[in-house]
Structures are given as C-alpha cells and as structure tokens.
Design a protein around this nucleic acid. Structure first.
Lengths: 336, 336
DNA sequence: ACTGTCCGTGTAATCGATTCCATGGAATCG
DNA sequence: CGATTCCATGGAATCGATTACACGGACAGT
C-alpha cells in the first residue's frame, strides 16, 4: 500500500515539491498555471497529505486531545460530542480517549496523547495531579479541565456550580417536609465528588436535618455503586425518606434497586438525580434532577483551548445549575 | 515549549542516537552499560518519543481509527468504549470520530483518519460507499464495518441478525393478539434501516397483518424522528395497537410522546424498543426490547482488524439477537 | 598467530511535507 | 535603456526517530 506523496504530485504536475507544497497549502506566491497543474495532479492521484510528516515539520498538529472518564456516561458522551463538533468547526481534529474511571488508565491515555503531540488537551481529571498530569503541566502544554478540577493545580476550567445545585435540591426536599435525607456520594478522588458531598453536609447542618453518618453512602460514579448505595440506605433500621445521588450512572443504579424492591418513588421515597439525561424524563414518575449543561461545557472548553493556543489569557468559568422539579419528589409519607 | 528529543537523551547518556534508539525500543544488541545510562537519561529528562517522527519512519502508527455515527447513542458509546479498551489491551491507540449521522461529516472524518495514517479503521458506515470510503478501500487499508454494512462493498463486518430480531418481536405481538402494528423505521441509507424494515414488512405479510402504508413511519435514527413517528401513528384514524421502533434513540422519542399524551404503555399501546439500554429497564412499565450485544461487537471488530493487519483472512460475523420480554407488551385491548 | 564470527556502536540515509535561500525572468521606474 | 523591485520557482535543509551499513575489538577455531 504505497501512498501518494507530494513528490508524486509534483512529478505529475511537472513542478518541484516546493511549488506543489505552496499550491496545496494556499501560499500566495504561485502562478495560476502551476496552481491548475498541481491541483489537477493532486486530485487525479487522490493525494492526501501525510499528517505525520506535516506536523513533524510544523511542530503543530491542529489536534486536541480529549480525555473523559467514561464515554458510556451520557453526560460525558454529550461533552465529547460537542467538543468534537466545535473543534471540527474550528478546523481542528480531536483525539478522544476514555479513562474508564481509572487513574492508571488516565495516565496511560495522557502519555498517548502527549506522544501524539496534541496541541492541547481537554480533560475531566481525577486524582491529585501527581502522575503524567504534572509532567504535562510543567511542559506548558495548554490544558483545560472540564467538569472536574484538581486542588492546587492552576489550570483554567469550566465547571458547574455544584454547591447551589445540591443546596436547591436539599431545600426542595426540606420544603416537602423531609428531615432524613440519604446521599450516594461520588468518589472523593474527584473534585465533583468532594464538592457535592461537602455542599450536602453543609445543607444538612444548615437545616438541622438528621445527621447520621450512615445516611451517606460512598460510591464511585458507576451504576453498580448506586445500586449498592440504594440497598444500604433502604436497609437501614431507620431509612431515609428521600435520597440524592451524585451522578447519572449512580442514579440509574439507585432507580434499579427501587424498581427491584417495588419502592414507590415520589410517595414511599423521594429521589433526586444528578444530570438531566433524557431517560430521566421517562422513568415513572419522571425524575426531579439537578441539571447542568454538558453541551455548553464542551463548546466553552474548546473556546478556552483556542484562546490558550492563541496566547490569550483565559479565566475559568463556572456554569449555573438548576433544579428541575418533576414527579419523583413529594411530601413525606411518615410526616403525615 | 521545546520538547526533549532522542538527541538530548543520547547526549546526556554519552552515546549516539542510534544506541539510544536501540535501547529504548528494546533492540537486543545493546550493552548493559549503555542500557543503564540511556534509561537513566531518558527518565531524568522525561523523554517521550515523538509519535509523528516514529510513524513517519516506520510507516505504521499502531493506531486504529474508529468512526461511529453518534457517540450520544448509548449503543454506539458502548461499542466505542469496548473498542478503545480492547485496542488498548492489544497495544494500539484509537482515534475516535463522530459522524453526527451525516454522510458529509462521515467523509470528512474518514479524510482526517486517513491523513493521520491510521493502520486500520472500524466504521459504522452509511451511504452507498461512493465518497471517501471508496478511496480508502481502493487504497487497500484494512477496514471493518460494525453494526452496519454497505451493499456491494466487500468488507469484513460484524453485525447482528436484524431479521430474526424483528421476526421474534412481531411474532410476540401476534401471539398477544395484535393485528395492526406500527413501525418507526430507520433511514434507508443504512443497511440496518433497510434490513429491519424489510424484515418487518415480510413478517407483516407472513402473518397477514394489517398492511397500510401509513403504519410505517420513516425516521432517521434520531430521537426527534421517533417522537414525530409516534405522533403520526397515534394520530391515524385507526391507530396501531402496537409499535416497534428501529433504534434506541427513536424509541426514546416514541416513549416521550406516549408520556406526553398519557398513553398507557402495555395496555393502551404495546411498545417494543431496539437495543437493550439500561434506561429501558427503568421506564414504566419496563420495556420489551430487541437486544443485541454492542460490547461483543466492539471486541470482535478489534480482533478482526488485528487479523487483517497480520495478513490473516477474516470472515464476517453475524451475532444473534434476542427478544427480552418485559412489561411494555400486552394483549390487545381492542381485541377483547 | 591468523582468520572468521559476532557483537556493540556510530555515521548517515531515510520517511514526507514545509520553508529558507538563491536564482532568473518579467515588470516597473527613473 | 539600464537599474531595481518583485515574484514564481527550485534546491536543499529541516523536523525526530529508526535502521542499513560499516567499523573496530573480542573471542574462538585451526
């Protein structure tokens, strides 16, 4: 499979490789005659420039690396999709990797992206920034964090306001009369896991709600841990009357358990999910959720990377979060 | 940001670049002394080989391109995820692109992957294979189709048995007494769209069911068209008593409309969805679906690409499909 | 002791596209 | 009409890693 090089094009067009290159990259100093011959030759041979050779010379790949924790999570899939679309619109390609929610695989993917010499990276990070991430940052490669951040690491980021989302959710439950609220937390190796849990604890304190340690189940953002958390909370001697989960996959797990046990959501137990996934509108009853905007996160992240690449200063953005009230939350049964 | 090259490593280690390269790529003819010095120098400098330069020389990138129609579709997200994982296990990287269900973007993505000089591609194709796809195939680049194929194009593929899935679904509905079944079809530019529709039509004929043209709504595999199809079918003078949708996103749309109109699924209307998404277990009632296995498709596709790269012959695989009966299908109301 | 292997190493060519520099011809100006 | 500018063009260097080839030294066999 010998591929067509610019030499072949130049030879067929009867010009030098320099001229061929100039024509093909739109350099102004080319004659109409040469332009025509080179373009004809290129299309006839089906010439496709070798991106390796080009970026080796240019020290630029016009490619940004995207690392999400798990594409199977609809929230991250949406981010990945919009990032890919916006990048394409800006004339850049994207290399998408999936860390499978593992710090080890995160490091391997970062190494891969680094040796592919991406011009910048958009990352949903985890861990303490000690591994390959540190190296990348000392290298000065433009990086933007999305959804998550890392403490003490000064990287521009686009996140959502975890605090008010949780606060609104708890207030909503309190207004409905709930005093005993369970929480399925995300992993504490992630900033979102930590911030959401902290916000939950503060809200519990502010409203003087039941504050038993067993009301918080420590999950890992995967569906299975949401199910485990659901079981643990429902099996308590004094189970909560409402439950919050810290991401969409754990919310799924939680709902599965409720279905398994025929717990009537909205009456037996109020449930608030995280992320406004389409499917949450279809469950019965439709789920009250803390909504934020993955699409906007993705487009903003690309804008920020482009600004960084252009040498412009960027400031981190924090998007707002809103509570979407549907049927899965209702007044406490035990209360009445 | 001047990156560390193998020259820097060689200089620090006090050897030539050739020796440094040999050590780093595990060539046997190296002395223990040189090995130690080079490895030390490389780690000290944080050397990371430039993949561009390497693959330019080696004419191999150890990277496979993956093109799915839309990562937001959970079915394709799962394929992308398992492909990435299996490829990683095999020591290969993956470049993931998203065609956004558009033939135009499919061609652009293929061009991108081609200039990245991927060693092979795994594609969920659409269209007639006339654009960039033809060029890639005449180039002899190893390609494997997943889920979908293209008529008259001889490429190994891993698909699922669309026919029996639909047949089982229709038989199940017939057994429940349904005689008037609606169908929300996928785009006829895709093989899955065509095969499933053909299978549906044949099943309708075999069972001598109502065969009005308006019972088939032509959708495009996106959620919005599922909703439009749902409305069209429900608005018929004589609406169907059961509906099938040809993929998961359209099934979502269909369910949304049912919810909007308070159609009681399983009693007012039986619904069968396509793809066994977790969320379909949670809707009320749990959805009867035609299930197939995206994870297995992904791993098989990687195995096939590896075989092709090794010059071994491969034969296409067709995976089985099964009907998972849940609560969304029930006996006809009008029948009784 | 002499010749033939074998092994570790260095020099330099190579992959394909871009780009600096030099060149020659045409166009412009005094 | 001669000098100067401008522009299209080609030759050759370059990016960083790999590897064919050559070379020198060690070692074994006769």
């Amino acid at each position: 499979m010998h591929s067509v090089t610019i030499r072949d094009v130049a030879a067929l067009a009867g010009v030098s490789t320099a001229t061929a290159s100039r024509v093909l990259s739109g350099h102004p100093a080319t004659s109409p005659d040469a332009r025509r011959k080179v373009v004809d030759a290129a299309t006839e041979l089906g010439f496709r420039p070798n991106a390796q050779a080009r970026s080796l010379r240019m020290t630029r790949t016009d490619t940004i690396g995207v690392l999400v924790s798990d594409v199977r999570n609809p929230f991250f899939a949406e981010i990945a999709h919009t990032v890919a679309q916006s990048a394409k619109d800006a004339g850049m390609a994207t290399l998408l990797c999936d860390a499978n929610e593992s710090i080890d695989q995160q490091d391997r993917s970062l190494d891969l992206l680094l040796s592919q010499r991406v011009d910048g990276m958009i990352v949903t990070p985890q861990g303490d920034g000690s591994g390959s991430l540190r190296q990348i940052l000392t290298l000065g490669l433009p990086v933007v964090f999305v959804d998550r951040t890392i403490d003490g690491v000064d990287v521009p980021s686009v996140t959502s306001d975890n605090r008010t989302g949780i606060e609104d959710a708890v207030r909503h439950l309190v207004d409905l009369g709930h005093r005993r609220i369970g929480y399925v937390a995300g992993p504490q190796e992630t900033s979102t896991g930590r911030e959401r849990l902290a916000a939950f604890r503060e809200a519990v304190e502010r409203h003087s709600l039941d504050d038993a340690p067993e009301l918080v189940y420590q999950g890992d953002f995967q569906a299975a841990s949401g199910a485990a958390g659901g079981r643990a909370l429902l099996d308590l001697a004094e189970p909560p009357t409402a439950v919050l989960a810290a991401d969409s996959l754990m919310t799924f797990g939680l709902l599965m358990v409720c279905q398994e046990r025929a717990v009537r959501i909205g009456t037996d137990l109020s449930v608030i999910g995280y992320d406004d996934i389409d499917a949450f509108r279809l469950v019965d009853p439709p789920l009250t959720v803390i909504a934020h905007d993955p699409g906007r996160m993705g487009t903003l992240a690309v804008e920020m990377i482009r600004a960084l690449l252009a040498g412009q200063p960027v400031t981190s953005a924090v998007l707002t979060t809103s509570l979407v009230e549907r049927g899965s939350t209702g007044p406490t049964r035990r209360n009445s």
